[in-house]
């Protein structure tokens, strides 16, 4: 029996009403950013969320933390549906769940010192803590994420991108949370710094045991850090599987195309590689295709794909795929 999930997302939908309000009428427009997503997250597990722009991965990450309202579905955290809690109850839950952002500098208040930024979540949940105690805890956390504790009185703009991301990680870790949503945490960083941050997150997880939801469009990084990977396309889950299956044996044509599109830093391999180049761009999320959203670019699409969205069905013990024509790639 596998351990009880920390988080269980059930048929979650997040829709945005983007109707342009006009004096007379106006055409109603709904963006289904997240449209019926279901998954579990186990304690200590890293789930990678991959997909291209507009696939809803960031929206999903925020809805899980109830930073955005859910249109339908449930986000069950240790047996309780987060979206049915009142504001005060939800605030209490926030001690155990945190978020790290893509743009490290934008996620830090430029008017506060590093010490104040990292201490804020700590003081919210421990208002009685003395000033010295807060400062000690902040300094310990700074050392843990690889910042010099004597920089505690500096301001965010005095740090480089990689160091600023360490500050963001320290803020997220200060209450020792059980889950962190990492929203493209390395995408804005230089190549040589990305590796530092990935290693840091993996070390911290090893030491503190929190779960991670790791959102990224960089498949190589996701493969490196995740235990399981979920592939999204226009708000729907295409495939979810353990890391090795999804990279070695992807069954969904979209996952296969994504995998083959990533350039490999080896001229011989990269130039000989047999790539699937998809036709066209992503469809507008305002007006998604009927049936399976991927069918307009899918090399295997047939008539049924335009009519029925395939269910996410098991294809192995830890492997689920949503495709009428799921199967290994033909060479």
């Amino acid at each position: 029996m596998s351990p009880a999930p920390l988080l269980s997302v059930q048929d979650l939908k997040v829709h945005f009403d983007v109707t342009r309000k006009r004096l007379f009428g106006g055409t109603p427009a709904i963006v289904k950013a997240v449209d019926g997503v279901t998954f579990d997250l186990k304690p200590g597990e890293t789930l990678g969320l991959v997909g291209e722009s507009g696939c809803g991965k960031s929206t999903l990450g925020r809805a899980v933390l109830r930073l955005l309202p859910a249109t339908a579905g449930r986000v069950v955290w240790l047996g309780e549906d987060l979206h049915s809690l009142d504001h005060a109850e939800m605030q209490q839950k926030r001690r155990d769940m945190q978020i790290i952002f893509q743009d490290p500098l934008a996620s830090l208040n430029p008017r506060m010192t590093v010490g104040q930024i990292i201490a804020e979540p700590l003081s919210v949940f421990n208002p009685d803590l003395s000033g010295t105690e807060v400062k000690n805890r902040v300094r310990q956390m700074m050392a843990k994420v690889g910042l010099l504790p004597n920089q505690i009185n500096r301001y965010p703009h005095e740090f480089s991108g990689g160091q600023a991301q360490r500050i963001g990680i320290a803020r997220a870790m200060i209450n020792n949370p059980r889950m962190i949503v990492c929203d493209e945490p390395v995408s804005a960083l230089d190549v040589s710094i990305q590796a530092q941050i990935v290693n840091l997150l993996m070390d911290l997880q090893h030491e503190m045991g929190m779960s991670l939801i790791f959102i990224s469009h960089n498949l190589s990084v996701v493969r490196h850090i995740s235990h399981r990977v979920m592939v999204l396309y226009l708000g729907k889950v295409m495939e979810i599987a353990d890391r090795d299956s999804i990279y070695a044996n992807p069954l969904h044509p979209y996952t296969q195309a994504l995998n083959s599109a990533v350039p490999i830093p080896d001229p011989d391999l990269e130039r000989q590689k047999d790539r699937i180049v998809l036709k066209g761009d992503l469809p507008s999320p305002l007006n998604p295709p009927s049936g399976c959203p991927f069918r307009t670019r899918c090399p295997r699409a047939t008539e049924i794909c335009a009519q029925i969205m395939p269910d996410l069905l098991p294809a192995g013990p830890t492997h689920h795929v949503a495709c009428h024509h799921a199967g290994p790639r033909e060479r």
Binding site: R94, I99, Q102, D103, S107, L108, N109, E120, P121, F125
Partner: peptide
């Protein structure tokens, strides 16, 4: 709309 406000909300700041 800046991310540090979202970060504060996520940290349970009132």
């Amino acid at each position: 709309r800046r991310e540090f406000i979202e970060a504060a909300e996520a940290s349970g700041v009132s």
